[in-house]
Design a protein around this nucleic acid. Structure first.
Lengths: 191, 191
DNA sequence: ATGATTTCTTTACCTATGTAAATGGAATTC
DNA sequence: GAATTCCATTTACATAGGTAAAGAAATCAT
């Protein structure tokens, strides 16, 4: 399992002093299954490194229907990224689907560190680019693939995950109803 | 109309020498309506600043159906961004919907410039973050809004554009058939 | 100015999917 | 261990939207 230092220093070379200054900004935190890292309605201020566990990021529309946007599996960064960047109200909720261990930092303190640690800022640029690429692939998936194709891709991208979370979460992620997912599963099982 | 220097130096402060080194990488280019800046199937190597004109970015699926992902209106950057980042095959096409004036640079030369111009790299980080935010807003739009709501949002986000491009391009961008867009337009006109 | 081509709208028909409800099994709580 | 809650599947019915075709209007080329 990749730890925090390995994860970040694989992005680009980081001087040891800068790494220590960066790492010091992060404090350990635990979430129990069902607890939220962030909720919609306020500006996000914290970012976290997910050391262990599963988190779902979702929106609610005005009918209180939930749409799962992404599943985060350790190791990775989590947080209301658009809100952190724009400093506006955050609309994403992030909820633990299992007990989780996190390292949490205040985003403004990280921005301040860029002045004296350009290699940390380079890591942040590379992360932003990776997140963009993930988003673009997700957009392509949503508009070009039908639900069955998206389900098969989900199984490839998140092996084992479907044994660990409810089917209706997967249906939501795929943008279909639980009924329709059940039909797709029956069809695939009949092959 | 914002020129290249204004556009980029509004992202963050840029030292004059670094700006000149950056600007020198870009060469003027023109596209006529119907010509392509990039086509799917090869790795992208160039990025461009769109000084004047309209460009659509689109994918084709295996049935050769086209899906408009974004409309670029000057002033902004264009190019196969995911391919530039990942150095893998580019799947986006970018076609001029009007005659266009561009400033084009080789992406690898820009990356080389980051070593001696950290302020240029900071501009790139800020751009990557802005592009991510745009992508996330687009994803939310696609999954949470129905076609009519997306059409109204398109009209707000791209005022006047629908007078300048074909309806079937707009339908593609909204993820519906031209028939369905026509039904929506009739319904809205009847209000 | 005219003919050809492209775009847009409309209609009929069909399919995919959502919703509501019912039922059964699994998991959780007491 | 029993009761309760949650999850998954299935069915019936309704609706939204795609497709194909036809016709009119707009645009383009000569």
């Amino acid at each position: 399992m990749t730890d925090f230092k390995s994860f970040f220093t694989h992005l680009c070379p980081i001087e040891e002093d800068n790494w220590r200054a960066f790492e010091k900004l992060f404090k350990p935190m635990q979430l129990k299954k069902g607890e939220y890292f962030i909720e919609a309605g306020e500006q996000a201020r914290d970012i976290a490194f997910l050391e262990e566990g599963i988190i779902r990021a979702f929106y609610r529309n005005e009918k209180a229907q939930e749409y799962n946007k992404h599943f985060f599996l350790n190791p990775c960064f989590i947080g209301g990224y658009s809100s952190l960047i724009t400093k506006q109200t955050n609309y994403i909720n992030q909820e633990a689907l299992s007990d989780c261990r996190l390292l949490v930092a205040n985003y403004a303190e990280i921005l301040q560190l860029y002045e004296k640690a350009p290699d940390i800022e380079r890591g942040a640029r590379i992360l932003a680019e990776k997140f963009f690429v993930q988003k673009e692939q997700r957009e392509v998936e949503i508009v070009l693939l039908d639900a069955e194709e998206r389900y098969l891709k989900f199984q490839k991208e998140f092996p084992q995950l479907e044994q660990n979370i409810a089917q209706y979460h997967i249906a939501s992620y795929l943008g279909i109803s639980p009924t329709q997912l059940s039909r797709i599963r029956r069809k695939l099982a009949g092959k």
